[in-house]
Design a protein around this nucleic acid. Structure first.
Lengths: 197, 197
DNA sequence: CATTTCAGCGAACGACTGTTTACTGGATGA
DNA sequence: TCATCCAGTAAACAGTCGTTCGCTGAAATG
């Protein structure tokens, strides 16, 4: 899997050959079948590996429970750091999210949906979500997750060591999160605040 | 190019073979070189084709100049319709946006940047943007463009004829746009509203 | 009418692909 | 100690691949 991830930095999974991986590992082509049935099989395994480390990280971030202002910058920092340290995994996920192998696409979509669900659960128990319908909370969580994905892929497009470029993206992402937060706080402004139904 | 686009619905560009295209067209493999040097060359041509039709459409939408409330629903409708009618083009762009061919990735990134710039220019001349810095306007435009991309790819994941699924995505996207619009309208709330500088 | 341009042709090149087969040797566990 | 796994092996299979070559014929150009 490490070898595959190494090769996947510069190509997509569907163009990656079984023999190519074996060659990189230094192993006979047939040995591949001892571990995976398909290339798609390898793909979903890599998806699980990628989201595994991320899940632990988000759990850590969520328990920090800082003020809603600092939590924005902290979130962006955490994303930046995680992308920096797991570049290959993120590149793989970004590339295969809409890639050619349906099984891999489905696995990624499933992980992201779980992610949004978790986040929605967290958002729902915050005081800012009072008066929100469950559907609207999920809608907001999806917006946050989409923005997170966009931010992560933006970090990926920075040339690896360019700390200035990273900082620029982090600044923009933070301000965008603030726009969304402001929208969230005024979501119920136009509705009757406490009308009985 | 039509043949390539047809084949690209189920695979990515880097896994698509030159001979495969020739076979689909009903032509000798060598004929490919009469039109494109590379597969990457074909890729950037397809990118230009894809964004060409979209550009015209957005220009049309921008001149409609409706109330800021209806413009949201109208925008989502327009995206939905355009994705429905140019499914193959959108799928191609979504897939190759982070795909294996750098030239194609760069072409797509360039088109999206132009897009955001245009939108920023439009936003800047709206009364809601009074007091905004140029950087913040671009930041907002990027947020809108990212959301547009996310919405378009969400439409792509709907099984083609499923009008119910489309409607659900349209509803969610519209509400997300409303969140962003609310955030935009309260962006300057915490700053001194009319302090002389 | 003469000439040039140009999309397409068929054949051939070496190199690479996924998959199956029967076999090997070291570690694991009873 | 002996039997059982099991990761890895070499070899062979029929295909597919990108690319180059010189040639053809119709259309456009003058």
């Amino acid at each position: 899997m490490d070898a595959a991830l190494r090769l996947l930095e510069h190509q997509s999974l569907s163009s990656l050959g079984l023999r190519e991986i074996a060659r990189e590992v230094g192993v006979a082509p047939a040995a591949f079948y001892r571990h995976f049935r398909d290339m798609a099989d390898l793909g979903v395994a890599l998806v699980e590996e990628s989201f595994g480390s991320l899940r632990a990280l988000v759990r850590a971030l969520r328990t920090e429970a800082a003020g809603s202002e600092q939590v924005i910058d902290r979130t962006v920092e955490v994303i930046a750091g995680h992308v920096r340290e797991h570049r290959a995994h993120f590149r793989f996920v970004a590339r295969e999210r809409h890639g050619g192998l349906p099984a891999v696409r489905a696995a990624i979509a499933g992980e992201l949906a779980l992610f949004a669900e978790d986040l929605a659960h967290d958002l729902a128990r915050q005081p800012e979500s009072e008066g929100w319908s469950a559907g609207d909370v999920l809608m907001l969580a999806d917006l946050y997750v989409d923005h997170m994905v966009m931010t992560a892929t933006a970090f990926l497009e920075v040339p690896e060591g360019d700390t200035g470029g990273e900082a620029a993206i982090a600044r923009a992402a933070g301000r965008q999160l603030r726009v969304i937060r402001l929208g969230r706080m005024h979501w119920l402004d136009t509705e009757p605040p406490a009308a009985g139904a």
